[in-house]
């Protein structure tokens, strides 16, 4: 049953994504890529559970590296997007 529920979320989110993204102007496509990139770091919450679970040493080691990679992705992605978008929002002379 869980699989069907997951599939439902997947399909609906896909259509929602299509509607949302097609409205974003070409000017913002680079920040869109880096911003969505940061969102894909959501996999971090999966790595947090695995890294801290103490299942086995191997799982913890794998989890450790997964957390590092995902955190770099999340923190770096949002910061880079922020820097770029600040330039777009800025008015001349500021």
């Amino acid at each position: 049953m869980a699989f069907v529920e997951n599939l439902t979320l997947f399909v609906l989110a896909g259509f929602l994504g299509y509607e949302l993204i097609t409205k974003i102007p070409a000017t913002l496509h680079t920040p869109l890529i880096s911003g969505t990139n940061a969102i894909s770091g959501i996999t971090l919450i999966g790595s947090v559970v695995v890294a801290g679970s103490g299942h086995s040493t191997l799982a913890s080691v794998l989890g450790f590296f997964a957390v590092v990679l995902a955190t770099v992705n999340v923190v770096g992605g949002y910061l880079v997007s922020h820097q770029m978008l600040r330039n777009f929002g800025r008015r001349r002379g500021e």
Binding site: A2, F3, N6, L9, F10, A13, G14, L16, G17, Y18, L20, I21, T22, H29, L32, I33, T36, N37, I39, S40, G41, I42, T43, I45, G46, V49
Partner: peptide
Amino acid sequence: AASTGFVLNNSVLIIAGTLVGASGLIL
């Protein structure tokens, strides 16, 4: 990320990952 959500049965991974997937495919 979305398919990791299927492994872990995690809703937000599926939603967020799919949004990103849609965005990348449209671009």
